[in-house]
Amino acid sequence: MAKMSYIEAIKETQRAEMQRDPNVFIAGEDVGVMGSAFGQTAGLLKEFGPQRVVDTPISESAIIGLGVGAAAMGLRPILVIDFIDFMAVCMDEVLNQASKLRYMLGGQVKIPLVIRTQIGAGIGAAAQHSQSLEAFFTHMPGMKTVAAATPADIKGLLTAAIRDDNPVMFIEHKTLARLEGDVPEGDYVIPIGKADIKRKGSDVTILSWSAMVHKCLAAAESLAQEGINAEVIDIRSLVPLDKECILNSLGKTGRLVIVHEAVETSGYGAEIAAMVADQGFDLLDAPIKRVAAPFTPVPFSPVLEKEWVVSEEKIIDAVKSLF
């Protein structure tokens, strides 16, 4: 195990994969000389040169398009779109090209690309730099969507994403940048589609992903003091979803609280709730609860933003309402 931060894990995983496979390259805005806004690619230009660490114009459509064309030719692009909010300007390349080409072409082509991007509020970045839009990408057959909550999960999931033969949305969270954690050394791959039980429990299942996992864990500790033993599942992969892990957990607990940072309406929690209602109805002893953001854009003022982001208290209240 090595101690490293979330950002260092991103950087080191990319470095290791680029050393391992000459077909892996990075392209995006400010990934080269600057090493990305938070240092996620720092030093890689110097090590791998401008052919493999490509500073691009501010042209998101052309960045993803470049990745699609390069991937169709057998390369393994890592495309950096710094904030998930900016994905709105290159959606055609993601939705109609990257996700669908293999199918439309009858399986003639593989599109092994990774789009690295960040979600999340909490740093006063306001409505166009704080959204959690991961659900958009779960509505695209052909695309996989993963989200990492810890430095170890960064390494395991990013390695898997880069080696995957399909397009993968790799969702990072900006408030986790400095989070430190133990990261396994050597080759470490977490299969995409495997959830992780981050806390074992028997009374209620709290399900989440990305930064909210940490709030769920903190809430679980508080609940434990009140005699409620919560199991916390980090799904880690939205598509494909580890239904088995979720349903097994509900077999023990009979109660489900889904927590996500995105707005509640049409958030991915709705999909999970529907899946459980359909496939796990008999396991439930109480209604499924969702804890998510209100249906408003993300506000700027720290006072407003704090109100907007799901709090530990809201998670605790939701859990208690089931007993």
Binding site: I64, L66, A70, A71, A72, G74, E93
Partner: peptide
């Protein structure tokens, strides 16, 4: 067009 640019890059 952007896909062609990617093919050329490769």
């Amino acid at each position: 067009l952007p896909i062609a640019v990617g093919v050329a890059f490769a």
